Simulated assay, not measured.
Amino acid sequence: MFGYIFLLFIIIIISMSLRTLFSPIPYQNKLLSWESFLYLIFIYSTIFLGFGLVYFIFIQNGYSVLLENGVKVGGLLYSLQASFYFSGLTLFSVGYGDIAPIGIGRVVAIIEALIGYTIPASFVVRTVIDFRKERG
């Protein structure tokens, strides 16, 4: 039960982090700045850690979500490491294929990959809109 409450908490944190991309208040004063770069790193870090914990919680609650070389990922420390590794690869690329999602993990991986691909686009659009507001 605690795992599901923690899972809901993680989903809320991820949603709040993504929401900042669409808020009308600009977070940077220049078109490109260190603040913008750090802001983007913070969003990616939140998504990466959040989804890593989602995979880990599913594994700890008995769901098979990740396979490594055809074997279910298990064990406390190894499943935590594998969850973060898989989350990072899914968020930043299409993965190497050494760890594959199964079951509900496939749905979670698709959602994470979709978010990973749309963050840069929405960040660029937001920067252009903020730039036009400053000039206009």
Rank of each mutant, 00 (worst) to 15 (best):
residue 109 A to G: 10
residue 19 R to D: 05
residue 2 F to Q: 05
residue 106 R to C: 10
residue 99 I to G: 04
residue 86 F to A: 03
residue 8 L to C: 07
residue 98 D to V: 14
residue 46 T to R: 03
residue 114 L to V: 13
residue 62 G to T: 08
residue 52 G to D: 05
residue 22 F to E: 04
residue 123 F to T: 10
residue 52 G to M: 05
residue 96 Y to R: 13
residue 41 I to T: 08
residue 19 R to I: 09
residue 71 V to W: 01
residue 57 I to T: 15
residue 11 I to H: 05
residue 123 F to E: 04
residue 82 A to F: 07
residue 94 V to G: 10
residue 55 Y to D: 08
residue 72 K to R: 09
residue 116 G to P: 09
residue 111 I to D: 01
residue 82 A to S: 14
residue 57 I to K: 11
residue 62 G to P: 09
residue 132 R to N: 14
residue 136 G to K: 06
residue 117 Y to W: 13
residue 14 I to M: 05
residue 20 T to D: 03
residue 32 L to R: 13
residue 36 S to E: 10
residue 74 G to H: 11
residue 27 Y to P: 10
residue 134 E to T: 08
residue 12 I to Q: 01
residue 92 F to E: 05
residue 67 L to D: 11
residue 77 L to G: 02
residue 47 I to V: 15
residue 56 F to H: 10
residue 28 Q to L: 07
residue 122 S to K: 07
residue 38 L to E: 00
residue 90 T to M: 05
residue 93 S to I: 03
residue 91 L to I: 02
residue 36 S to D: 12
residue 95 G to N: 09
residue 67 L to W: 09
residue 107 V to S: 12
residue 136 G to F: 07
residue 136 G to I: 11
residue 29 N to T: 09
residue 41 I to W: 06
residue 15 S to Y: 07
residue 101 P to I: 05
residue 81 Q to V: 13
residue 23 S to A: 09
residue 21 L to G: 02
residue 60 Q to P: 06
residue 39 Y to L: 09
residue 17 S to C: 08
residue 75 G to H: 02
residue 103 G to N: 14
residue 91 L to W: 01
residue 80 L to E: 08
residue 72 K to E: 14
residue 26 P to K: 04
residue 70 G to D: 07
residue 8 L to R: 06
residue 87 S to V: 11
residue 61 N to F: 02
residue 11 I to W: 05
residue 94 V to I: 13
residue 41 I to M: 12
residue 85 Y to A: 13
residue 66 L to V: 09
residue 54 V to G: 01
residue 1 M to S: 14
residue 54 V to R: 02
residue 5 I to D: 04
residue 47 I to Q: 02
residue 108 V to I: 15
residue 51 F to M: 03
residue 107 V to I: 15
residue 34 W to L: 15
residue 68 E to T: 10
residue 41 I to F: 10
residue 20 T to K: 02
residue 75 G to S: 06
residue 67 L to G: 07
residue 16 M to G: 12
residue 10 I to W: 00
residue 76 L to I: 13
residue 13 I to A: 08
residue 65 V to H: 07
residue 44 Y to H: 12
residue 108 V to M: 13
residue 54 V to Y: 00
residue 10 I to Y: 01
residue 133 K to C: 09
residue 55 Y to P: 10
residue 51 F to H: 02
residue 16 M to A: 11
residue 102 I to T: 14
residue 123 F to R: 04
residue 129 I to F: 07
residue 70 G to N: 12
residue 113 A to T: 11
residue 75 G to E: 04
residue 51 F to Y: 07
residue 11 I to F: 10
residue 95 G to L: 07
residue 115 I to D: 01
residue 119 I to R: 03
residue 35 E to C: 06
residue 102 I to V: 15
residue 111 I to E: 01
residue 61 N to Q: 12
residue 9 F to C: 09
residue 66 L to H: 00
residue 126 R to M: 08
residue 55 Y to C: 12
residue 59 I to S: 03
residue 103 G to P: 14
residue 4 Y to M: 15
residue 125 V to D: 01
residue 68 E to S: 12
residue 101 P to W: 00
residue 98 D to I: 15
residue 101 P to T: 06
residue 113 A to W: 14
residue 68 E to Q: 12
residue 132 R to V: 12
residue 63 Y to M: 15
residue 136 G to Q: 06
residue 6 F to E: 11
residue 49 L to P: 00
residue 35 E to D: 15
residue 23 S to I: 05
